[in-house]
Design a protein around this nucleic acid. Structure first.
Lengths: 264, 264
DNA sequence: GCAAAAGTGTTGGCGCTACACCCATGG
DNA sequence: CCATGGGTGTAGCGCCAACACTTTTGC
């Protein structure tokens, strides 16, 4: 219409340059391994897959091209489903950011918009169509070793920061617990994402004053041959937006193991 | 090479769908109006422009298509320069996120990656090539009224959150002050971005314990006919990463004006 | 078998820091 | 009238210690 032609000319002219652009959505799916014997730091896992034609021995985040007229969140859901068999829901997704350096993909210009999702640990991944393999791999090994293609290490690091914020403000942590759970189980979920330990007493108090977060039951744990005092069981409260931030600083002793230690 | 063909087939096939994709970078440039007579909440301004062919009476954020082989930050710098005459530096830019809903632009599928920059208030904007007008407009009016095209209101809101984080962690606030400044001037910079007032005493103390943030001078303010006790002058310290977060909660009285008030 | 030890969950408390709110003083 | 600085009360929380309740180990 009217004056829009001028603008259209500009865009059409630049459209040829646009031809080599590929808009991807990559998704970081976090989960917590339910194995209580593992260290909390080793229970945080990320869903990764082997790309057909990808570098040998390397993993990649599930992701793919955005379809015409497709919301970015739907691209995320679709590609995760295709490449790993996992089904995400739109409300699970949270944007991490855009990664668009010209040489982040050596094949062509690829701009990736990263999303993050937190899901309970699935018993098994369904069969896969568009990838050679899919699996949950510990965050630690992906971060420490160079197991990821492209700049996907950067992406999972940024994604964990988003996840941390979500744990602070909402009750998503409960989705990693069974319907009835102990305080320690819940605390270890936080420790897994934080990648450091939290004082049990402070954690308990902080959670207790957070209204409608969890509800104590008249029941106690009994893990068969587990030693120690039986733990009280809790169930989820009814508010998903927390009244208080669940936040704990990493204690200074642990940050600088060789640094200023306390008086003996 | 070797196995890459399979993957290439998939992408080539989807390439036709890709044709209607336009990857934009939009930039939110914040500044603080130096006029000390204004309320702090009204001093926060955003750089906007009139698009040729844009809706009458509406503003838009500067932005445009990403060039081939161009870093996203450079697109931001280039388009801000073209459309508003302002020159940004790469290190000023911080990513806000990606906005990619299929119908956020009624002309075609546009995916915008938003960046944010904090710049001193420029004396004047240079002549403009690719827009009909460019100007700084108060954040409040842009937020309250419907003066922005597309989803740009959402973008500036998200951008302010990023800016707030930056003010907390770095010394960027000083870039809105003259080389010599008073404590109140600095405080009002924070109040502008926070959009609420901060207790002067607490602010002073918080800034004082932040090492290498600002340095007191043997000098006092004298704004001619300004009433009140002359204020001490300060200059910038040497650390741009702050030792303490400069953070203040919005006081409860202001959040719920009709809520639980204190005992009289 | 029984006692001690060890392991885990729970509770309490101390001390420090941060900070919202208020007020006195100085120019 | 405004800048500065002091003071107070409170809440958060890092850290430590004690205690409760269990299984495991040693004799």
């Amino acid at each position: 219409m009217y004056l829009i032609e001028y603008y259209e000319v500009v865009t059409k002219q630049q459209r040829t340059k646009q031809l080599d652009f590929f808009v991807y959505v990559d998704t970081v799916v976090f989960t917590i391994n339910p194995d209580r014997l593992l260290e909390p730091e080793d229970r945080l896992e990320v869903l990764v897959m082997k790309r057909p034609g990808g570098a040998k021995g390397k993993w990649a985040l599930p992701g793919g091209l955005v379809d015409d007229n497709e919301k970015l969140e739907l691209t995320s859901i679709r590609k995760v489903k295709e490449e790993t068999g996992l089904t995400l829901k739109p409300r699970d997704l949270h944007q991490v950011g855009a990664f668009g350096d010209p040489n982040r993909d050596n094949r062509f210009r690829a701009i990736a918009i990263a999303y993050m999702a937190l899901v309970p640990h699935p018993s098994e991944l369904r069969p896969i169509k568009y990838s050679d393999a899919a699996s949950f791999v510990t965050y630690r090994s992906l971060r420490d070793n160079r197991l990821l293609e492209f700049d996907h290490s950067n992406i999972i690091y940024a994604a964990r920061k988003v996840a941390r914020g979500l744990l602070e403000d909402t009750n998503v942590a409960l989705s990693f617990c069974k319907p009835k759970f102990t305080m320690t189980e819940l605390r270890k979920v936080y420790e897994s994402f934080l990648q450091y330990r939290v004082d049990p007493a402070n954690f308990r108090r902080k959670v207790a004053v957070t209204t409608d977060f969890i509800i104590p039951l008249e029941e106690f744990s009994d893990f068969g041959s587990a030693p120690g005092r039986p733990a009280q069981m809790y169930r989820a409260g009814k508010s998903d937006r927390l009244s208080t931030q669940i936040r704990f600083r990493r204690s200074l002793d642990k940050v600088h193991p060789t640094g200023t230690s306390k008086k003996t």
